[in-house]
């Protein structure tokens, strides 16, 4: 005589229980990935009267007023052409006086000296500037630096910056294209 099969536990409602839990987690889940623009603030100034001497030609002054209008080196500009202006400004022109100075720098990981621009982007905003405008300017500048990183990366490794995997290579590119943005102390001209 064949063994009688033990009566099976009815697992039909198991799915329902799992569904209930699933729906709970589906509803409570927030899948927002936090994204943003990361910046390093300059360390606090110990001596307020100490001014770092930077040559005029090495600085690209970006000013934003309380009406969200922008001046780049004294001329009106807008966000859409800021990126090209920054890339142009940071490009290497050793013999042209209207561009920033260049200096040779030794990159240990690369094992040779390379020319680097001494240019600095100086970003100054009013207290009345809107945050939206400020971010779009930061974004445009970040875009310029990312383009330059892509250029260097293509030159040395043949791939774009975000496709680099080797952390050493990423380090080299970050050394080659330092993010030279200085944020001056804010001014209160236009009022809040």
């Amino acid at each position: 005589m064949a063994k009688r099969a033990a009566p099976e536990i009815n697992a039909g409602s198991m799915a329902d229980i799992a569904f209930l839990l699933l729906i709970f987690f589906l509803v409570t889940t927030t899948m927002d990935v936090d994204t943003g623009i990361t910046r390093i603030l300059p360390p606090p100034v110990k001596n307020k009267n100490e001014n770092v001497d930077v040559k005029e030609r090495n600085v690209l002054k970006v000013l934003i007023n309380s009406h969200d209008l922008m001046l780049v080196n004294g001329k009106p500009a807008n966000v859409s052409n800021l990126t090209t202006k920054v890339v142009e400004f940071m490009s290497l022109h050793p013999n042209d006086k209207s561009y920033p100075q260049v200096q040779e720098k030794f990159i240990p990981l690369l094992g040779k000296k390379v020319l680097m621009s001494k240019g600095i982007i100086s970003l100054k905003n009013d207290r009345g500037t809107s945050y939206k405008m400020y971010i779009s300017v930061q974004d445009a500048i970040a875009k310029a630096f990312n383009e330059m990183k892509d250029q260097q990366s293509l030159k040395y490794y043949g791939v774009k910056y975000d496709q680099l995997v080797d952390p050493n290579k990423i380090k080299v590119i970050n050394k080659l294209v330092p993010i030279r943005v200085s944020e001056a102390e804010p001014e209160n001209v236009g009022g809040q």
Binding site: T38, Y131, Q138
Partner: peptide, 23 residues
């Protein structure tokens, strides 16, 4: 307005919290 944001940034600088992220 940037005024309040700048104040916060200055305080962060003083507190030596230098790595920030604008979401």
């Amino acid at each position: 307005k940037m005024g309040i944001v700048t104040d916060v940034k200055q305080e962060l600088r003083k507190a030596n919290a230098l790595k920030i992220n604008y979401s």
